[in-house]
């Protein structure tokens, strides 16, 4: 069992619905984001190419955030989802500094660290994460990458894909179809 997300950058239009859905679903404080959309422009007009990516915590296999956490508040649960235990977090920021994707932030009210949870509360009910469920172009897919018959496995078996900063050694689990 290994949860992963596949995002089709060719279908993404950069509408930011995933961002709004996440903020509503998870009560993300104003001015903060658990996910965001990046526009990557390569070249100059007229030789120009744009890649749109919905980015968030990569729920890495090799987690620098869990490694550097001094209180074991950052942890990995069944299925590879990386979570922060609010009762253990002292808000030191070691995990924020150790994340190559800048996917974490200190919650302004709690003082503890907050991040994408893959909407674990929805996943346990058999639903997709909020961002995936609202995507109007259906460019996001969520599922078990260990299961060869899952939609995510099938997609990365046939399509060309990349992950973000694989050279950081984190083995990220968000796959971008390119």
């Amino acid at each position: 069992m290994r949860y992963a997300m596949v995002i089709d950058t060719l279908k993404c239009v950069g509408c930011s619905d995933c961002v709004v859905a996440c903020q509503t679903e998870n009560d993300v404080p104003h001015g903060y984001c658990r996910d965001w959309v990046t526009e990557s422009v390569i070249g100059t007009y007229p030789e120009v190419e744009i890649e749109l990516r919905s980015e968030r915590c990569n729920h890495c296999d090799n987690t620098p955030c869990v490694r550097t956490c001094p209180t074991a508040a950052s942890h990995v649960i069944e299925g590879g989802i990386v979570l922060v235990d609010r009762d253990l977090c002292i808000g030191c920021g070691a995990c924020i500094e150790s994340c190559p994707y800048d996917a974490r932030y200190r919650h302004p009210e709690w003082g503890t660290v907050d991040k994408c949870t893959f909407c674990v509360h929805r996943v346990h009910k058999g639903q997709d994460p909020a961002c995936v469920s609202v995507c109007p172009t259906n460019c996001m897919y969520f599922g078990d990458i260990d299961d060869a018959n899952s939609e995510v496995s099938k997609l990365i078996a046939v399509r060309k894909y990349k992950t973000l900063a694989p050279e950081a050694g984190t083995k990220p689990q968000i796959y971008y179809l390119i």
Binding site: S16, G31, C33, W36, V37, V41
Partner: peptide, 20 residues
Amino acid sequence: SEEVFISGRNIPHIDPHLTL
């Protein structure tokens, strides 16, 4: 190349740098 956040939201605490 250049990268721009277009989250459509104001995310001053993530973009452009995290100085915690």
